[in-house]
């Protein structure tokens, strides 16, 4: 205050800059002090990230993700949109998901289903990636006897690995076959142990037993009965990546750029735009599950 330079800063200028600075301090959420209260918060412009139509979809989605992450969890609505016209059926999403979540054999969060339509020579094939639909009305949740699966504050259907008793009731309840059971197998099981010649299971296992980070916990599939072995598992929109500002692995890796992800409560977001397309559909709508995964056909 004692700096003579301040005299030259007029009130208007000051308020503007003060707005920005205080918004920053607020964002830090540390010792708010009186400064926050003192400044008219209309002047604290909300942080906005530039993302426009025409820019690369990933850039845009990432910017929108940052924006959404600044909201309270309950105020955002994660949805996924998959453009079937762009899906080339490569299954990169399937495998990136396997890698990201260290999925064991037989556990799959996002298989790509293929169907042939038509008669030669007027025939085509469709490819339909199928993650968990993260239903707003999920049939899997009410059936769980121990409330190990529930919709979290983001609206994503999650599984508490430490609570799940492995009864698989939810698996039978899901109309989309989105849930699979972790039987405890590893890919490297059954490898001959040719001593000193080939790698063998023990070494290779090492990689498979390394922890994944689902739900932001380190789950190593270390023992026979340690979770997530003996649990039901499913797609969770890569919540652990979202928490760090990264898009789900399937969305990032998609080589046809067919998968979109974002906050549908943000009316300016790409997914909001896509969900309003005339060619949008959801799987098994008649069941009233209200899926959060939309398909463009």
């Amino acid at each position: 205050m004692s700096n003579p330079a301040t005299a030259t800063v007029d009130r208007r200028t000051f308020l503007k800059s003060a707005g920005a600075a205080v918004a920053f301090v607020t964002a830090l959420n540390t010792e708010p002090g009186r400064a926050v209260a003192a400044v008219d918060d209309r002047l604290a412009a909300p942080p906005s990230v530039e993302a426009k139509k025409g820019s690369d979809t990933l850039l845009r989605m990432q910017a929108e993700l940052q924006r959404a992450l600044q909201k309270k969890p309950g105020e955002r609505r994660w949805v996924m949109v998959i453009d079937l016209r762009k899906c080339v059926g490569c299954s990169a999403c399937t495998i990136s998901c396997v890698a990201e979540n260290k999925l064991p054999p037989g556990v799959v969060y996002r298989p790509v289903m293929e169907q042939e339509i038509g008669t030669y020579p007027n025939v085509t094939r469709t490819f339909l990636p199928k993650p968990c639909m993260q239903c707003d009305n999920p049939p899997c949740v009410p059936v769980c006897p121990v409330e190990a699966t529930y919709k979290d504050e983001n609206g994503v259907v999650v599984i508490d690995y430490d609570q799940c008793i492995g009864c698989r009731y939810c698996v039978t309840a899901c109309p989309y076959a989105a849930r699979t059971f972790d039987f405890g197998a590893t890919y490297t099981r059954g490898t001959a142990e040719a001593e000193g010649v080939i790698v063998g299971q023990a070494t290779a296992d090492n990689y498979e037993r390394a922890a994944n980070f689902e739900y932001r916990e380190a789950y190593a599939r270390a023992g026979r009965d340690e979770s997530p072995i003996g649990n039901v598992r499913k797609c969770h929109f890569c919540l652990h990546r979202l928490a760090e500002g990264m898009l789900p692995a399937c969305t990032t890796t998609c080589i046809g750029r067919a998968t979109f992800f974002g906050d549908a409560n943000d009316t300016d977001s790409l997914v909001s735009e896509l969900v309003a397309s005339p060619n949008v559909m959801r799987l098994k709508e008649d069941l009233g599950t209200e899926p959060r995964v939309y398909y463009l056909t």
Partner: peptide, 17 residues
């Protein structure tokens, strides 16, 4: 899947299941 967690069910976590 987890026999040892059967007691969880008795905690009245989800009476509607």
């Amino acid at each position: 899947g987890h026999m040892e967690r059967i007691w969880e069910v008795y905690l009245f976590r989800n009476p509607f299941s």
